[in-house]
Design a protein around this nucleic acid. Structure first.
Length: 654
DNA sequence: AGCACGCCGACT
DNA sequence: GTCGGCGTGCTC
């Protein structure tokens, strides 16, 4: 009799107590099929109960000393969980005190039998395409290419501006550089993973990729795809050929063949932050994977996040800038209205109005505003108190010039409204949404076409003809040939948000908008001065990130330190805090959230991260197994304890 | 999550 | 004597 091998299996369950490998005997009839990476079914606890899982490794002797059960079946021959992706999932989960299977769920889309059958039936006999990469412009002679070939880690300052990538399609210059980086890696026979925050960036990057790579070398892998499409994409990754794999945050877990590069665009965009447990940020997953696989790593951005700046200062990332430096012309201007009657009505400073007027003779002008809609807030015309819904106390807003004000929460129309403070019956509009700004600007520039782009009215691209393009931050379309001027109108309002990251975020929004200008276009930053305006004017966002990071070091705020947010019942949170081993001076809270739930923030240095994560993980398992919430609903069934690492949202500016 | 094991009240 | 309550704990 042959020595039986043991299959080590990850059970597909979010339960923290099942987040380890289980050993199973491989029955002789499955010996051929039981290879690492395949989906399997295994018995768990009692006969008849089978769980789905992934075969992680086959070993001679398992670690379990008890009696082993047998593998129930091998679901499919496809090795969907590549060993390096498993290693990454384990490492990322450990760092975030989460379950590896939660990461694996992001990495491996649900199986689609039809897609799989079609894939297995298709014989891919065609020889792999020969790829030649054109040089990446603006960074000096093969500077980026050779760094990537050596597996370096880079923080790349993007070149502002837009480029045509054939067929009249225009994309940000960053996309061309990132596509060039991917092409240079593919030309060397290796794969590249390219992560972007949203689908608008993805469209641009894909267009740039199609310009330099054959279609068969590009794979899309993102959350917007249907399950069959995602699974098809995964199977293409597993074909073994070098590919450019492009997608949003989960693409960092793609099973790339011979991975040569992970590139991340605009890592400061909050869409890179994974909303599902264990909340691993694209940036962190990319950093872990780079260490595991020793591929190259590049963060591209028009601006610089404090996290990337920290890594640059540590020497972990090398900063690369375009030579010679390309910088848009940015003019800061005070918040003072033009003397022109029409412009004054639109509340545009005279400097901005002049810039826009002359630019409109040549092409489109971008106007960036903070908020969508018409009037984001309404107030009592008599006493000035914010108007609230009579039914649910929600804030009122007005969607268009003619519409009746309505509640932002329950949608009730504010008819027969009366002020709760002074009994006043008249409403006054406060603030300008994109729609109201558009109306005002339309009046100030009669005869000019006005295009609105916001979350509801998404516009990806506009032509090169004169037009006023009013866009909320982050929703700016690309203009053919670039905008002739860019007005950043609501800077003050954007800065009023109470968040640790406001400065950083604003600089990113403004830089990304300014980067959409044509060469020689003027960007007007209205009503903002100080270090932020200086950083934008000098186009030295890294300087701002450096001083911001210095402030955070002084205050012991992230990313100078790491943080863990614990939410749950008072008892569970305080137990977890005690178990964490974090110094009491670095325990912030607890503060009350929804009634029974409280939140505490722990902060600690990076070198304590592993210990804190392990301690909190142990506490999570203890809470999940011992103190069980009663299924009948009776008894003290507290809120589930949750742990989230490196979430900066709860941090407000002091 | 499920499901078995285990240690105290009302039944044949 | 034991049938069964669901608190506690484990799953290879």
């Amino acid at each position: 009799m042959v020595a039986a091998s043991v299959a080590r299996v990850l059970v597909d369950s979010p339960l923290p107590q099942l987040d380890r490998l289980f050993d199973y005997l491989i029955p002789p009839e499955l010996a051929e099929a039981a290879v690492p990476g395949v989906r399997v079914k295994v018995p768990l606890r009692s006969a008849g109960r089978v769980a789905d899982g992934y075969l992680v490794e086959v070993v001679e002797h398992g670690e379990y000393s008890g009696v082993l059960s047998e593998l129930e079946s091998v679901v499919s021959p496809i090795r969907v969980l590549a060993p390096e992706v498993w290693a990454l999932a384990r490492k990322a989960a450990d760092r975030a005190a989460g379950s590896a299977s939660d990461i694996v769920r992001l990495a491996v889309p649900p199986r689609q039998v039809r897609v799989e059958k079609a894939f297995l039936a298709a014989e891919d006999a065609a020889p792999p395409p020969v790829i030649t990469a054109a040089p990446i412009e603006s960074y000096g002679q093969r500077v980026i290419e050779s760094a990537l070939a050596l597996g370096e880690r880079l923080a790349v300052d993007a070149v502002p501006g837009v480029r045509e990538v054939g067929g009249g399609v225009w994309v940000g210059a960053w996309a061309v550089a990132m596509a060039g980086a991917a092409a240079s890696v593919l030309a060397a026979g290796r794969s590249a993973i390219l992560a972007v925050p949203d689908y608008r960036d993805q469209e641009q990057l894909e267009a740039a990729l199609r310009h330099v790579l054959p279609d068969e070398s590009i794979v899309r892998l993102d959350a917007k795809q249907s399950n069959p499409d995602r699974y098809r994409g995964l199977l293409r990754c597993l074909s073994g050929r070098p590919l450019a794999i492009v997608g949003n945050r989960s693409v960092v877990y793609a099973p790339a063949a011979n991975l040569g590069l992970i590139a991340v665009w605009d890592d400061g965009d909050p869409l890179h932050s994974e909303p599902l447990s264990p909340y691993v940020h694209t940036r962190d997953a990319a950093l872990l994977r780079q260490e595991l696989q020793e591929c190259a790593l590049a963060f591209f951005g028009n601006s610089r996040s404090t996290e990337v700046e920290r890594l640059v200062e540590l020497g972990w990332l090398r900063s690369v800038s375009p030579v010679p430096l390309v910088l848009p012309k940015v003019v800061p201007t005070a918040q003072q209205s033009s003397t022109d009657r029409l412009a004054a009505q639109a509340r545009i400073p005279s400097a901005a109005w002049k810039v826009a007027r002359s630019a409109l003779e040549h092409g489109p002008v971008l106007v960036q505003v903070a908020r969508p809609g018409y009037a984001p807030r309404l107030a009592c015309a008599d006493c000035g108190q914010t108007a609230r819904c009579l039914r649910c106390e929600g804030p009122l807003l007005q969607k268009s010039a003619r519409s009746v004000p309505a509640c932002a929460w329950c949608g009730a129309l504010a008819v027969n409204w009366k002020c709760s403070n002074c009994e006043g019956e008249k409403l006054r509009l406060v603030g300008n949404g994109a729609t109201r700004t558009a109306e005002d600007l339309g009046r100030a520039f009669p005869g000019v076409r006005v295009i609105i782009a916001d979350g509801e009215r998404q516009v990806l691209a506009v032509g090169s003809e004169p037009a006023l393009v009013i866009a909320t931050r982050g929703a700016e379309p690309i203009a053919a040939g670039g905008y002739r001027a860019v007005l950043l109108l609501d800077g003050e309002r954007m800065l009023a948000r109470e968040s640790l990251r406001v400065g950083e975020d604003c600089l990113r929004w403004w830089s990304n908008a300014a980067a959409l200008g044509a060469g020689g276009a003027t960007t007007v930053l209205v009503g903002v001065g100080g270090a932020l305006a200086t950083a934008l004017v000098t186009w030295r966002q890294a300087d701002y990130a450096r001083s911001e990071l210095a402030d955070r070091r002084r205050l012991r705020f992230p990313p100078a330190v790491r943080v863990a947010t614990i939410t749950g019942s008072v008892e569970s949170v305080s137990r977890a805090v005690a178990a964490s081993g974090v110094d009491p001076v670095d325990v912030l809270g607890p503060v009350d959230l929804a009634p029974p739930t409280v939140r505490t923030i722990l902060r600690f240095d990076y070198n304590h991260g592993a210990a804190v994560a392990a301690a909190l993980r142990a506490e999570l398992i203890r809470a999940a197994t011992s103190r069980r919430r009663s299924p009948t609903g009776r008894g003290p069934t507290g809120p589930n304890m949750r742990v989230r690492f490196d979430d900066v949202e709860p941090f407000l500016e002091a």
